[in-house]
Amino acid sequence: MIPKNVLLKRVSPLISQIAEAHRKPRWEPVAKSKIYRIPKRPEISEEERLELLRINNNYKTQMRAIRRFYHEEMMRELSSLKSASSEMSQKLEAEEWEKCVHLNEEWNKEVAAEREQRRKIELAAMEEYTLKRMEEKDKEMREKIEKASAEIRLQKELSATFITPDNLEAAIDAALANPIDYNFAIDLKGNHFYGRDTPIVNQDKKDNAINTNT
C-alpha cells in the first residue's frame, strides 16, 4: 500500500490519476459525516429566473456574433497572408528589402564614423592615463632606491663599531673589564637606583619631606 502523502506530494505522475494539492484522492469515498447531507438548492424567484433567462439569451446571441466576427477576421488575415506570397507582392517585397538594405548601410556608415571618432578619443585618454601611471611608478621606484641607499650608508657608518673575529678578543676583554649591572631599585617618586651595591643617599631626608607634606 502506497502512503497517501506520497501520492499527494509526488511531482511526476506515477499512476494515471493526478491529484491536485490539498485534495483527497478520487477513490476516497464521501466522508461518513457528510453521507446524508443534502445541499440546499438556491431559491430563485420566478421574476428573477425570467430576467436571467432573458439576459443570458441576449448574451449568448451577442457572444455568438462576436465569435463569428473574430473567426472571420482570422480567416481574412490568413487569406491575405496567402495572397502575399504571389509573384507581384514578392517583387514588391524584394524592392522594399533593397531599399531597407541601402538605408541600413547608410546608417551603418554614420555609426562607424562616430565610433571611429569616439575610439580615437578613448585611445588618447587611455594613453594619457598609462603615461601618468608609468611616471608615478617610476617616482615610487626612485624613492624606494633612495631610501635603500640611505639605509646602506647608515649601516656602513655603523659597521666601524661592529665586533668582528679580529677584534673579538679585545671586545671580550673590554666587556669583562667594565661589568654593567642592570638590576635597579625604585622609590616612591620613581627614581631608579642602578646596581646591587649602590648606596642609597638622602633616604631619611626624602621620607621626612614626604611626611611633612602630608
Binding site: I66, R67, Y70, H71, E73, M74, M75
Partner: peptide, 8 residues
C-alpha cells in the same frame, strides 16, 4: 485574445 477567440 482576439487571435485565440478566432481560433475558437
Amino acid at each position: 485574445i482576439k487571435h485565440w477567440l478566432g481560433k475558437g
